[in-house]
Design a protein around this nucleic acid. Structure first.
Length: 271
DNA sequence: ATGTCGCTACCCTAGCGA
């Protein structure tokens, strides 16, 4: 099975590149994040012409995750029990929600006997922010939901934009991130707790240079200087992590006119 | 690194989020 994950930063803006990439890369399953379109606005017809079924979980202008599969797409689950939702700022300016707002950040399905998740973890903004607290509790809820999947027979793989760099080697300069999200001990502990539920981090090989980065800010020529981060991750249960035959970051997809700010990860499993 | 994107609402540019 060839599995890939890609934060496309708007499926509408990226559609020509997405279709071209699917055609040339030929994955069996693609996990998509940041579709930024409403539930019924995913270009399912266009990807169907390339042979893919779609499961989209979208809400409009922000977030949105999808699974594209031609290896089967069964038992689709949008969201997960225990998602805390975004409850607003405690003091008000952005407005308190009467009920926590459950955002479209996770979708999972059985693809060829594998429980595949596509997730878009909250950014967190700053460590002082209510968004950061939300990020940590969201990751805690994800861990509980994934642990339940791991108790069943099917192998599990959780793919997506985690908005956390697991180690200092996963950012271009740790000193540049002091006081920022994505690198704090609690965020890394939340990732570790997810792994400890029974998943291995499949670290992909960069196509060029020593750094396994998957994201480079659009600004300041960050991509050309390889000042990036590894925040897109593939966490797989042992039956899958032991069956990896290749894993790489497709930095070619980050080049040229109109790229996403994230590169896809492509993994081959011999299963 | 704060140099760019993509979105929406409101009108074609500003404000937001990343």
């Amino acid at each position: 099975m060839k599995l890939a994950t890609w934060n496309v930063n708007s499926v509408k803006a990226r559609l020509p590149r997405l279709l071209d990439w699917l055609d040339r890369t030929d994955p069996d399953v693609l996990c998509v994040q940041e579709t930024k379109v409403a539930a019924d606005a995913f270009p399912a017809k266009e990807v169907a012409e390339l042979g893919y079924e779609t499961a989209h979980h979208g809400e409009g202008r922000w977030n949105g995750v999808a699974l594209l599969s031609r290896a089967g797409l069964e038992d689709v689950r949008r969201g997960f029990a225990g998602d805390p939702g975004w409850a607003g700022e405690p003091t008000g300016e952005e407005g308190l929600f009467e009920q926590p707002h459950i955002e479209a950040r996770a979708v999972s399905a059985l693809c060829g006997g594998v429980r595949v998740w596509s997730v878009y973890v909250p950014n967190g903004r700053t460590p002082e922010s209510a968004h950061y607290t939300y990020k940590l509790s969201w990751l805690g809820g994800l861990r509980t939901a994934v642990a339940q999947d791991l108790a069943s027979a099917a192998p599990v793989v959780v793919c997506g934009d985690f908005n956390v760099a697991p180690t200092d080697a996963d950012v271009f300069d740790p000193a540049a991130f002091v006081g920022s999200t994505h690198v704090t001990a609690p965020e890394r502990a939340a990732l570790a707790a997810l792994r400890e539920a029974g998943l291995d981090d499949i670290v992909p090989t960069p196509m060029k240079g020593p750094n396994p980065f998957t994201y480079w800010d659009y600004r300041a020529g960050m991509f050309h200087q390889d000042k990036g981060m590894r925040i897109d991750l593939v966490y797989a249960s042992p039956a899958l992590s032991g069956a990896v035959t290749s894993a790489y970051i497709d930095r070619e997809a980050r080049k040229g006119k109109g790229p996403s700010d994230h590169a896809p990860i492509v993994i081959d499993f011999d299963i």
